[in-house]
């Protein structure tokens, strides 16, 4: 059987007494690009946090590469091959771009030169700015550094939280081009996004969350043609 890379089985997550995720089932296959869509406060980020281990589900299981990671710490999961581009990027502002990349490779004790050259080939702009403080970069550049940093650990699956947030429309387009290029390079993706239109043009499959429940799922093409979804999120 073809094992999914990441799988959430019947996950229920609570913040204190508040039930956030309700019986969420979700999986990402190897090499797949999955978009997680939904409006405000529907549990998109919480799903990502559950996958990453920042939130431990009350019931249900999380599998990564066939390993039960439900109660595993964040660091362990990342060592297994997860990487995250957090919401708002969260770069280390006063540290140089190079140091940010070094931290991205913190998991592997010996950072290979290949990692750097691969990332620098992909992002010449990041290479140029390597000695600059990350906080002094423009929004688009910071996004590149955030992705580059995540790639430094050679992840199998990249989790991205709102890659379009805080970017100019032009840069959003660029950002998604970048993401799909990465995907073409062999990295599986789970991308949380409000900009459903944009996400569905590049994704293979999509899930739609509504108040903590998955209400729709399917190939991206089908989803973007779904009448209900179009009315609710795509605005046309």
């Amino acid at each position: 059987m073809n094992q999914p890379l990441l799988e959430l089985r019947n996950v229920d997550t609570f913040y204190g007494p508040i039930h956030i995720l309700q019986k969420v089932n979700l999986h990402v296959n190897k090499g797949e690009f999955v978009a997680l869509l939904g409006g405000n406060a529907c549990g998109k980020s919480t799903t990502l946090k559950t996958a990453l281990g920042l939130v431990i589900p009350k019931s249900g299981e999380v599998f990564f590469n066939g390993i039960d990671v439900t109660n595993m710490k964040v660091a362990h999961r990342i060592k297994l091959g997860l990487a995250v581009v957090p919401e708002n990027r969260r770069l280390f502002g006063p540290l140089s771009v190079m140091e940010n990349l070094q931290l991205g490779a913190y998991t592997n004790k010996q950072t290979s030169k290949e990692n750097y050259s691969r990332v620098f080939d992909l992002f010449p702009r990041v290479a140029e700015r390597r000695n600059q403080m990350a906080g002094t970069l423009s929004g688009g550049e910071q996004q590149m550094v955030a992705v580059a940093r995540a790639l430094m650990s050679n992840p199998e699956l990249l989790l991205m939280d709102e890659p379009s947030m805080g970017l100019a429309p032009k840069l959003v387009e660029q950002s998604f081009e970048m993401i799909s290029e990465l995907h073409a390079g062999g990295v599986s993706m789970l991308v949380v996004e409000q900009n459903a239109n944009m996400a569905l043009t590049v994704a293979d499959r999509g899930y739609v969350l509504q108040t903590g429940r998955i209400v729709l799922e399917g190939p991206a093409k089908e989803l973007s043609e779904d009448e209900e979804l179009r009315r609710a999120y795509l605005g046309r």
Binding site: V74, R90, L91, L95, R149
Partner: peptide, 15 residues
């Protein structure tokens, strides 16, 4: 230094 700057992000780097 990363931890002093942003603890959560440092955690994401497996610090």
């Amino acid at each position: 230094r990363s931890m002093g700057e942003d603890e959560l992000a440092a955690q994401h780097m497996t610090v």
